[in-house]
Design a protein around this nucleic acid. Structure first.
Lengths: 329, 329
DNA sequence: ATGAAAGCGCTAACAT
DNA sequence: ATGTTAGCGCTTTCAT
């Protein structure tokens, strides 16, 4: 692989001139430019990012931390991040942390090691303390999940309001016994969505019953099934369920069907995220839609601004309740 | 951020010694090592990969090209790749090409630019000609989909045999009118799976009917629905359907249900991939399971061997037909 | 408009 | 066992 030296030699100019051509400096004669471009062509030369990055001490790589690529919720967000990044001359490094601190450590080091210019974290299970520490020295943005006590800029939706609206929708349908399938409340979004759930119940003078609130440690289908199994065992069965994630709701639906019960006639069901599969279930799932693509674009924009030392403010985006068969009696 | 110079100065040694400590050379005295380590600690020093990589002309980054992270099929493969990569001191760069040649180009350049040491391609829509060209100069492995005419090592399963077994399973159940929902036959796996479908029909003297073979350009659910809609319009409806992907099969199932037909009583259904959703549908989906994690590990191993200039041979892994409700009358 | 040369942070060959 | 030094490929001042 040819380097800049050989190109310079072949073109009969200095390396500086080649560099100028590469970086589109205006001071190069059309004639010289042509000579250099010909040499580049002939030698099949490709500039080494390594040399350039070392010199500029930037990598133009953005790290994106997600807990698991299996969760379809992240897909569209990542598309938004990627499109925005590429438009701005950045590439993204997708890091499936598996919520594993060791993997996380490796990726954090990439930033310290100058192999990446910044981080977008979407992992609720990330070590917030570490992340806040890193953020003192390196550009970091949080997307979807964030640390309310920290100082890292974030983009997210109003989780409490979204949950409130979802539950209110169930109440308006006449439900009085509404269960909540929540994830681990050490995550902010889980606490916020629970707050929205309680807010709606309170507003309509419905009691908040611990027996109808189930917590699960993971978001995979099976945990939704497990949650629903438990809820169906309570002596007074709920007539509606609000689940903080579509994957959990889909598991719950499976379990309800397995008990020969019908949705929505016996139990109405609302999910969260509007993953594509939520429209393939039978019945289709009422759910809260987040502007995922936009969220990704926004996060990438914020990070790039931060890398360029500009001011960055946190952003709250809109959401939407999508009513489908699982709540349409 | 401190550099190796400052560490050397603080420790009262040369940069070479610091480098030796960093790289665990055995020739360093315990005492010197301690001095250096203390200095590193105090300065909060992190070696710059950029400098190291430039010097060694390697990045220890592996590129993984996938057509779309939304397809759950790739999830487990990527986990395998990632685990193997990390074990060997490599990190992976996940590239969602969206089957977009422009994005592809960017990622190809990363290898040319020394920002990545090699590529694992899982994109069926990749420009095979370009890929083969690149492979002359850079380490490349294909995973799952490959080019039978090319020289790039690959890891995959026997698609024809897998399809043959799936269709034979339907025939053994008594089905004589078996439809095929295939993807675009410009992809090898699509041609191979069709060959398996035809092989099974031929073996049992069943006619191959073009009206029961449907091609779709994409793998998303909606395209499965569309395919099934068409198949249900044929004057002689099939009693069984083999779909080359679970996502398509799930769409087909949705459509069958919409027509008030039952699976498997009216129409039996077999998918391919065993994605996690395939167990959440009602009924659950009979499907072909690929050893995805192992496939990922193998691909990463092969690539790393190739990077180290070792010989690499293509690998065919085993598959398994998982019989579930959609074919259990 | 172009060239010469320093230097980004690191490793390794060579010298001591 | 440790130090000196060249050089990986590039960009950018400073001269000319």
């Amino acid at each position: 692989m040819a380097n800049i030296q050989e190109v310079a030699q072949k073109a009969g100019v200095s390396v500086a001139t080649v560099s100028r051509v590469l970086n589109q400096h205006p001071t190069v004669t059309a004639k010289t430019r042509l000579k250099v471009e010909t040499a580049i062509e002939e030698l099949n030369y490709e500039p080494s990012m390594l040399g350039r990055n070392l010199r500029n001490s930037e990598s133009r790589l953005l790290l994106v931390l997600i807990p698991s690529i299996s969760n379809p919720f992240y897909t569209e967000i990542i598309n938004g991040i990627e499109d925005t990044a590429i438009t701005n001359g950045y590439n993204i490094l997708l890091c499936d942390t598996d919520s594993n601190p060791q993997r996380e450590h490796i990726y954090f080091n990439m930033v310290k090691n100058k192999l990446a210019d910044g981080i977008i974290s979407m992992d609720p299970a990330v070590d917030m303390e570490k992340l806040n520490g890193l953020a003192m020295q390196y550009p970091i943005i949080q997307c979807s999940e964030y640390d309310e006590k920290g100082t890292i800029p974030y983009v997210t939706i109003d989780n409490q309001l979204a949950a409130y609206r979802a539950v209110k929708h169930l109440i308006k349908l006449g439900h009085k016994k509404i269960a909540l399938i929540n994830s681990d409340e050490r995550f902010l979004y889980a606490r916020e969505r629970r707050a929205g759930y309680e807010q709606a119940l309170r507003e309509f003078n419905l009691p908040i019953q611990e027996k109808w609130i189930y917590h699960t440690n993971h978001l995979e289908f099976e945990f939704g099934q497990q949650a629903m199994r438990k809820l169906l065992q309570t002596e007074e069965k709920p007539t509606a369920v609000f689940s903080v994630s579509d994957t959990l709701a889909i598991g719950a639906l499976k379990e309800i069907n397995a008990h020969e019960l019908n949705v929505p006639e016996d139990i109405a069901l609302v999910g969260f995220d509007k993953i594509s599969f939520s429209n393939m279930t039978n019945p289709t799932l009422t759910t809260v839609s987040q502007p995922m693509y936009k969220m990704g674009c926004t996060a990438a924009d914020m990070l790039i601004r931060k890398i360029h030392n500009k001011d960055v403010e946190s952003v709250i985006l809109d959401h939407e309740l999508v009513i489908r068969e699982s709540t349409m009696g």
